[in-house]
Simulated scan of single mutants.
Amino acid sequence: MSTPPTMPRLKGYRFPREIVAYAVWVYHRFAPSTADVQDLLAERGVTVSRETVRKWVNRFGCHFANCIKRDRPPAADKWHLDEAVIPINGRKYWLWRAVDANGDVLDILVQPQRNANAARRFLKRLIARFGEPRVVVTDRLRSYFKPIRELAPNADHRAHKGLNNRIEGSHRPTRRREKVMGRFESPRQAQRFLTAHDQANTIFRPRRYRISAISYRHARADAFDLWNTYAAEMAAREPGG
């Protein structure tokens, strides 16, 4: 991955945006620690600290996620909703996630509860952005029933454990990241990281088993072009390496 050398340097940053964008991409595309990213950059002759990598990821991960959300095609009108427990500082939190019929993550929300109020809050976010769905697929958690009837009265709500395998599989990258990161530090950090991680996977992990090798290479090249375009839109708000 490379960005055009004519890109202006980020104000207040020692390193060119090509390096910053590469570090953020590696961190969210694969499953490395900040130390791993530090070593990858060192192999390329770039000496930075783990703390600098962490600041880059925290500062610009949301930028790339917002750009991907902005430019993504319209979501399918069939949604799969699910929730998974994530322990943070010895306390249970719930990661609410929605994917569409294509398997693309629509949104995530980390909340301390797994009840009707939490389901309503998450569904409101989705409908405000994507409109009312045609079909909503969930497991049999009763907390979904009333919010869906209230907020999406015209939607076909299908509550069945076996129908929600698509979204259950979308939790696996989160579990892998948890192991690498040694758990999340706070709900805010989990929300910030997982938002960027899921959106990066949306463009860099097309379903390879559904497309030919040539189509996959084209999709990957398009994803790199998008990332470079988003790197050109990066704006510095605070110094960070």
Rank of each mutant, 00 (worst) to 15 (best):
Met1Ile: 01
Pro4Ile: 01
Thr6Pro: 01
Pro8Cys: 03
Lys11Ile: 05
Lys11Gly: 03
Phe15Asn: 08
Ala31Glu: 11
Pro32Tyr: 10
Ser33Phe: 11
Asp36Lys: 10
Val37Asp: 10
Val37Glu: 13
Gln38Asp: 04
Gly45Glu: 08
Arg50Tyr: 01
Val53Arg: 07
Arg54His: 10
Phe60Tyr: 15
Gly61Arg: 12
Gly61Trp: 10
Ala65His: 10
Lys69Leu: 06
Arg70Ala: 12
Arg70Pro: 00
Lys78Arg: 11
Asp82Arg: 04
Val85Leu: 12
Pro87Gly: 09
Ile88Met: 05
Ile88Val: 06
Asn89Asp: 11
Lys92Cys: 05
Trp96Val: 02
Asp100Thr: 10
Val105Gln: 09
Gln111Phe: 00
Ala116Arg: 06
Asn117Thr: 11
Asn117Ala: 13
Asn117Gly: 10
Arg121His: 08
Arg121Ser: 10
Arg121Leu: 09
Phe122Arg: 14
Leu123Arg: 09
Arg125Asp: 04
Ile127Phe: 02
Ile127Pro: 00
Ala128Glu: 09
Ala128Val: 00
Arg129Asn: 07
Gly131Trp: 05
Val135Thr: 13
Val135Cys: 06
Ser143Asn: 09
Phe145Tyr: 04
Pro147Tyr: 05
Ile148Thr: 02
Ala155Gly: 00
His157Trp: 10
Leu163Arg: 14
Asn164Asp: 03
Arg166Leu: 08
Ile167Met: 12
His171Asn: 12
Arg177Tyr: 07
Arg177Ser: 02
Glu178Arg: 15
Lys179Ser: 04
Pro187Gln: 12
Arg192Gly: 03
Phe193Gly: 02
Leu194Asp: 04
Ala196Tyr: 05
Thr202Trp: 04
Arg207Val: 01
Ile211His: 02
Ala213Phe: 13
Arg217Lys: 14
Ala219Ser: 11
Arg220Asn: 02
Asp222Pro: 01
Phe224Trp: 08
Trp227Asp: 09
Trp227Phe: 08
Pro239Arg: 15
